[in-house]
Structure formats: structure tokens, C-alpha cells
Amino acid sequence: MQQLTVNDALGQALAEEMRRDPKVMMFGEGVATKRQELLNEFGAKRIRNTPLAEGIIAGAAVGAAAMGMRPVIDMLFAPFLTLAMDEIVNSAGKLRYISGGQFSFPLVAIAMTGTGWTVGAQHNHNLEAWFVHSPGLKVVMPSTAADYKGLLKSAIRDDNPVLFFVEMSLSYELGEVPEGEHIVPLGKATIRRAGTDVTLISYGKTVRACEAAASLLAEKGIFAEVIDLRSLKPLDEEAILTSARKTGRVVVVHEANRMCGVGAEVAAIVAEKAFVALRAPVLRITSPDVPAPSSYPLELAFTPQADTIAEAAASLFTAQMEEA
């Protein structure tokens, strides 16, 4: 199998989709400079640098999408999405509905986020839940190179606006990517590690922390199942509930802060629909309610780590917890 960095896997997905469909185009600040190979193959009409102006980048994508193009926009770092919120939330998310279904918005907005580069709070903000909370949008945040490729292809083909979050600390990490056409459907979670005793549910790079936690737990004889949500909207309720019913114990892990995060939704779904199967409370391991710090030790303390996850999961097996 080919070994690709996440960044190259995304490049491959873009190239394949642009070859397949002449309506696909891409623009953003530095897109033509940084994706030179796409510029060479597809030309300056379809691969464009833009002025430094997120509002008009997103607005142009929304307008072009409604009129038959399939734009992919690179918004650089997730906090810059705030400058395009009106275009994404009020226009892309709502104009289909409020026009009675006259328009659709097949566009993808890519943005990097996550700890690991000590870039601080104005470049790193896990704000994916904001978009989950906005009707009309889909949200994706993969954890492996193969999924970055397969989900980007699906996102480009989807007829709805998709927010596509890239963990910056994974961008240059190598991973196996299947040769040939590789599609991962939106809205489908995957089991990264099968287990019977407790379910660790996550997305993005904290999936790795969950896998490491599962190894720590296995040493104690606790067999954890690790679920990678990959898509946050649509959310794969089926995968969540099947595992929760099997293990009866659920820990949701994400780097975004706790209150009203995706973990809250997962916990609520489990409480509403798998209550009788639960043998312990659903726990959430998240970052604290603070902007992401730059300082390395603070950034590390901010980020959910394997040992904390393992400890939390193990705590669900104490007698007290079983009673609770």
C-alpha cells in the first residue's frame, strides 16, 4: 500500500476529483503557491490564490456552488473561519431551506486545527461543534491519512456544504492509503480496535490517544473498543449505540472543550437510547474551557492524554461507579 502524509493524501484526493469532475475548483490564500502540482495540472482558472479575505473567499464559494461549481476552499487555520461565519452559517447553511430547496451548496471548506504546533489560540481552536450546531452543514474530522483522502473525496461529491477539519499535527505524518479509487462515506464511524468492556469514542488525533489508552487498559485486563467517529455530522448513532450496548461503559474523548462539545451530544444519545445497557455513567475527557495556550507544557496539559483516558476508563470498573 502507498505511504502518504495526510497533506499528500489530501492532494491526491483533490487531484483525482478535479480530474473526474471539471466543476471542482479550489481557491484560498496561497492555494496556488502551496499546491503547485494542482496548478500545473489544472491551470490558473481552477486553482487560485485569493486576496487575504476569508469573507469573500467563503462568499464566492457559496455563490459559485449554488450556480453549479464545486468549490473547495482552504481557510488555513480554523479560527479564521470566524471571519467567514456569515457566509458559511447564514448563507451556505440556510439559503437552501429558506429558498424552499431551490439551491444546493456543494462546497468544502478545509481548515487546520489542534494542538501540537504551539501556535496558540488564534491558530488552534477546536470549534467543530459550532458547525455541528448549525443546520444545513456537514462536519468531518478524520484521524488517518486514508480517511483524510477518502472523506475528502466524499465531501467534494456531496451536494451539501462540508466543513473539513485537518489536525495540523497529523498533516505531515505518514500513513497507509489504499491505491486506486478510495472513498470513505460521510456519516460512518469506524472501529479502530475491537473490545468488550468499555467503549472509547473519539475523533481526530485523540483517537490515537484512545488507542494508546486501550493498550494501557489491556495490561489491566480491560478490553476497550475504540471508535473513530470521523464524521461529526451526520453522526453515526448506530455505531455509537451498538458499541455502548455491547460494553455498557462509554468514555467520549475530544480535544475541544467540554461544554456543548460533540461529547455532550454523544453522551446524550447514549443516555437517551442505550440507558438500560449502561453499567456506569458516561464520562467525557476533553480540554479545559480555556483558549489553547502556546507554551509547550501548557499545551500538553491542555490536550487529552492516553494515561488520563485510561484512568478514567478504569474508574468505571470500581464498585462505586457500578452502583452510580
Binding site: T118, V119, G120, A121, Q122, H123, P291, P293, S294, S295, L298
Partner: peptide
């Protein structure tokens, strides 16, 4: 900024 900013702000 007590290390919370880094170089950027």
C-alpha cells in the same frame, strides 16, 4: 504574556 501567546500575539 506568561508564555500563553508565543510569538504570534
Amino acid at each position: 504574556c506568561k508564555g500563553k501567546s508565543g510569538s504570534l500575539h
